[in-house]
Simulated assay, not measured.
Amino acid sequence: MTGAQTSAGPVTTGRAPLLESRGLHVEFASRGRRARAVDGVDLAIGQGEIVALVGESGCGKTTLARTLLGLERPTSGSVVYGGTPLSHRPRALKAYRRQVQLVLQDPMGSLNPRQTVYEAVAEGPRIHGLAGEREIVASALARAGLRPPETFFRRYPHELSGGQRQRVVIAGALALDPKVLVADEPVASLDASVRGEILALLLKLRDELGLSALVVTHDLGLAWNIADRLAVMYLGRIVESGPVEQVLTAPRHPYTQALLSVLPESPERVVLAGEPPDPTRIPAGCRFHPRCQVLASGRAAEAGVDGRCRSEPPAVLPARPGPQAACHYAAEARDAQITRDPG
């Protein structure tokens, strides 16, 4: 995979794209330099599709999610919803946030301990001036699996279990009847016994309401169980994407292979050298090359791509549903396979 660091633009088939990032860059000032938190991302979420965004802490996942929610302004590029670029004018953002809602990982942190469940779920409908508040709250709680909903109206967060609190957070999002949920580590703070229940709820909401979702996580097992498609992020950029089963059973990018190697069933553990680089000093060439096990082992040199790994940045991956990897070695291996087996 070669070429300059320019985006080919979103190209999707199958499900129509509902929420997209196009050539997205987000930078922050850091110690007199610019940190490239999101550094050229094309990503599309189709109608009724769940996309998992995975990667190490600090890779830019949360910044990308916040930008898709309109909470951060892109330095360049755009967020597109329903074919229309997102405007950051207050009135436009308010209307947009009825359609795209956030579900946070820590329900105790996102719920006001002094508010009842009713007040927490009613907050969004009140901000947006929706009529029939009581019916909206009851319906949202019921859809989130808290039944009968009226029995939860007067309860406070500390009176609920962790799973029930997360359902209240989800109900607060559902009260606005959104089309997309952005869930940031939605089960990370929950006991293993209730994680499956929340994941099953998200799948049920997708099936019954046609909701789309972006699930931000470092947990590949969660991605396997919930996502239709997977995007792997490293140092501000998507380095591999595709249908979740294809990416997790036949990963092409060395970084994805390293992430998968920590799973118990993995035959071989890959230990990456060092920490992720400083986003104010992204390496030349492939941004993963200083830690790449394929380059370090000499396999990239054997394939004749080691020089390109160190000097030539792979192109930005377009937002298309098929499997793809931003890796010179993977591209060379793919081309060699096609040459051997052209049929």
Rank of each mutant, 00 (worst) to 15 (best):
A336P: 05
A16E: 12
K179L: 06
P74A: 10
A300L: 06
L86P: 08
G322R: 08
V215P: 02
D39M: 06
Q99F: 13
L263N: 02
L141E: 02
T217F: 01
F288H: 01
V26L: 02
L205C: 05
G210L: 15
R126K: 14
D219W: 02
M1S: 11
V247L: 06
R154K: 12
E56G: 01
A188T: 07
H218A: 02
G124Y: 05
I127V: 11
L174T: 01
D306A: 08
G109H: 08
R34F: 12
R287K: 13
I198M: 01
A326T: 06
P290K: 12
L69R: 09
M108G: 15
L176N: 13
W224M: 04
S87Y: 06
G83S: 09
Y96D: 03
A315D: 11
L130Q: 09
S189L: 04
R287M: 08
L146Y: 01
R155F: 05
P279W: 13
A330W: 03
L146T: 05
P314T: 11
T116F: 09
M108C: 10
T339A: 07
T217I: 07
E135C: 08
E185L: 02
E312Y: 14
V41N: 03
V121Y: 14
G343K: 07
G129T: 14
T116R: 10
V187F: 08
S212F: 04
L222M: 03
G242R: 00
G163S: 00
E268V: 01
S7Y: 11
